[in-house]
């Protein structure tokens, strides 16, 4: 098994402690999100009027809030939102970044200068502030906050893809493709892009923690997910409202967030060792 490339990768990744721990953490989150209805004892917005502000006990593992909603169920359902943020946010960033990076790197010249100037402009406004400005324009919702964060973060992808494209486009196999009469879009998509996949995977794992934390920050500020969403960022801000009465409200969603980001970080460190020793 270990003489095929996939088998080799598998046996190397089994030995990489960071990768394995990160992978197990992420797997646990994905499973929690998928099977949330079976894991959570209650629905996330099911009120228990008699049990408002209950401290963690055997029925309500993470306690209850001002509506008597079970916090454990809310944290479990919150995994779905985090997963949604991670997938949608990454998709937008990768699509934008890869398109711009490929065009810049491949064609060069005026297109390159204009687009790279645009990435310079987005880079000179601190991310949180730019995202806040974008949310002001788009309005408050989870989707808008994901868009805002993605509009801030795509430039990193564009830079790496551009640099990689520029170094790849002078390789002999591209010259061969040109000689065979392949069209330019085909060269970009079928010859250059596949060679960047490892670097892109590493880049995604490096950007993911920022995407998750920034979106949670916007939700925390009341500019992302709106009640009764079980979003972890929003849950922490609700916990902050009752911080003097019930400490547990703010603690558990935050722990879930830290658990997720530590997992992504470890997976990223592992992937960096496994796929691309040159990055970072």
């Amino acid at each position: 098994m270990s003489d095929t490339p996939a088998g080799l990768f598998l046996s190397r990744s089994l030995k990489n402690v960071n990768f394995m721990i990160g992978f197990i953490i992420l797997l646990s989150i994905v499973l929690t999100a998928v099977f949330a209805p079976s894991i959570a004892p209650f629905n996330y917005d099911e009120p228990h009027k008699a049990d408002r502000f209950t401290a963690p006990n055997s029925t309500y593992w993470f306690g209850t809030d001002d509506f008597g909603r079970d916090q454990f169920s809310r944290v479990v359902y919150g995994a779905r939102i985090t997963l949604q943020v991670a997938i949608v946010g990454t998709l937008i960033q990768v699509l934008l970044g890869v398109t711009v990076g490929l065009l810049c790197g491949f064609y060069g010249g005026a297109i390159d200068r204009i687009l790279m100037y645009l990435t310079d402009v987005t880079w000179c406004v601190p991310g949180t502030v730019l995202a806040l400005a974008v949310v002001t324009v788009l309005g408050k919702s989870l989707m808008n906050s994901i868009i805002a964060i993605s509009l801030v973060n795509w430039a990193g992808y564009a830079r790496v893809v551009r640099a990689k494209t520029m170094s790849l486009k002078n390789m002999p196999f591209i010259e061969t493709a040109v000689a065979f009469g392949e069209r330019r879009p085909i060269i970009m998509l079928r010859y250059i892009l596949p060679n960047m996949v490892p670097a892109l995977i590493v880049l995604i794992s490096m950007n993911l923690p920022g995407t998750i934390l920034s979106t949670a920050t916007l939700s925390f500020l009341g500019l992302g997910s709106q009640p009764p969403s079980p979003d972890w960022g929003l849950a922490i801000s609700q916990g902050m409202t009752y911080v003097t009465r019930c400490v547990w409200l703010g603690v558990f969603p935050g722990l879930a967030l830290v658990y997720t980001v530590v997992g992504v970080n470890l997976l990223g460190e592992g992937l960096r060792d496994l796929l691309d020793p040159n990055i970072g």
Binding site: A216, T217, F220, I236, V243, G250, V251, G254, L257, V258
Partner: peptide, 12 residues
Amino acid sequence: MTAVPNFWLCVI
């Protein structure tokens, strides 16, 4: 610490 969101750190 890099995994801890700033706003949650404030809460804690």
